[in-house]
Write a protein that binds this DNA or RNA. Structure first.
Lengths: 247, 247
DNA sequence: CGCTCGTTTGATATATTTCAAGAATTGTGG
DNA sequence: CCACAATTCTTGAAATATATCAAACGAGCG
């Protein structure tokens, strides 16, 4: 395949292969999936709660997040996604979306028709297994967030989220584990950790004051990874990353 | 199949068929899966965090829950399972368990070797799709729990959990939507909704005092489903139940 | 350069936790 | 079947983490 290096779906190949090794044929089949590319602005919605999406959505660039809104108006972000993540496999396979997906920053996505996803998943078990893994790992991250929000206090909680980003950013080659740029406001951060933006602000300042992090606008630096991981009660096993078990 | 009515794996057939219709052949193939039956006491662990489980586990009777423990000792229950649920598909497929699974009450489980699960999932797409759905729906429930714990106050939160149980119990034919028995202590309930057992106690009493529920020991009666659903901000779509869309 | 959005700061309010002890219920061995 | 032990539930008072409200400050942007 002449375009095998620059092909947008290579991101998908890489992701799936990471979870479950693919043969060359599998890789080519994934690259041969039909898709349409779209450019989205920050704040644009990929899916609305209640929709019946017809496509799975692969993030090519930029960041996105899933969220729900409670009856009292409170918003809760349930996950944050970056380049290479497949959002909306859930929503499209389950038929009707049970949550919203919105772009955090401007970015590109690839839309792949559900039927094509379904077909390749079962005609090529390795591909299917990779997709299944992807959803299983997401489940694992959801569980950790439940623990994080449910049982950790503000400073540990925010610290934990910063650590998670750090590892995932590095795994996606979007930054180093100890330094990365995340285009998120404190209000959005608050909605992710179930705190108030005011309290998130105070918490970030305390993390900085205590020497755990440095920050300039949207850039986070974790000064001492080990110290931070201890404070943040962060054990990355739940991410199920197959990297050379650094850390 | 002479034993097709009493066969333990019928529970699995039913569950998978609910998510994605199975052919007769598929049903028989599921029933033909190898498995071992085990009886567990209340409090026994099905899997420990860090284990490398070799089996997927189907609950035949009794209740179980998944939990994690934070560094500060706080315990968080992430899901509660009943007859017909498949726990530990996650843990066994992902290789190393990222959370604990423990029996809430005494009960029976069927252990199915992972390889057999993996094989049937890809040799029989309808079965595989059903399993995938199962994990997707679980993901959806996790997301709702994140919202519940993150953005709802005590009374709404507890109410929401009671509503969820109500629907799931009825869907599993373990009780009526408005009345069911759940062998859970207030301490465990507290660990599920991320509150203190003391506060859960006060909250249950308030729910009772306000007329939303009645209770005798472990039996919960929801006096007026609609009123309760409104209070509890409960919209069951996230359960993705395929029942005749009651409610 | 002025506007808007995001961050920072302060004072006060409140939901939930913590600690502690008593009451009720369930389980158990004799 | 009773008596005792062990959980579980209930209640109260005090402590605290986080929310709320409101205003000032700063930075990026058209």
């Amino acid at each position: 395949m002449s375009d095998s290096r620059t092909h947008p779906l290579n991101l998908l190949v890489r992701k799936l292969d990471q979870w479950n090794p693919l043969s060359d044929d599998d890789c080519n089949a994934v690259r041969a999936l039909p898709f349409t590319r779209r450019q989205l602005k920050a704040g644009e919605h990929v899916v609305w709660d209640g929709d019946r999406p017809q496509n799975a959505c692969l993030i090519l660039s930029g960041f996105a997040y899933r969220y729900k809104v409670a009856g009292n108006g409170g918003r809760q972000i349930m996950s944050i996604h970056m380049k290479g993540d497949i959002v909306d496999l859930q929503n499209s396979l389950l038929g009707v979306a049970d949550h919203n997906v919105q772009m955090l920053s401007a970015g590109h996505i690839a839309l792949i028709p559900v039927e094509a996803v379904r077909d390749i998943a079962f005609s090529r078990p390795a591909v299917g297994m990779g997709m299944w893994y992807e959803t299983l790992v997401e489940g694992s991250i959801f569980r950790e967030w439940i623990l994080n929000i449910g049982r950790r206090n503000a400073i540990v909680r925010v610290g934990h989220l910063l650590c998670e980003f750090a590892m995932r950013m590095e795994a996606s080659e979007l930054g180093k584990q100890t330094e990365y740029e995340l285009p998120i406001t404190q209000e959005q951060l608050a909605d992710a950790v179930a705190l108030t933006s005011v309290h998130v602000n105070r918490t970030l300042m305390k993390l900085e004051e205590l020497g755990y992090i440095s920050r300039t606008r949207r850039r986070i630096t974790i000064n001492d990874w080990h110290k931070m991981a201890v404070l943040a009660d962060f054990q990355p096993r739940y991410l199920h990353l197959r990297m050379d078990a650094r850390n």
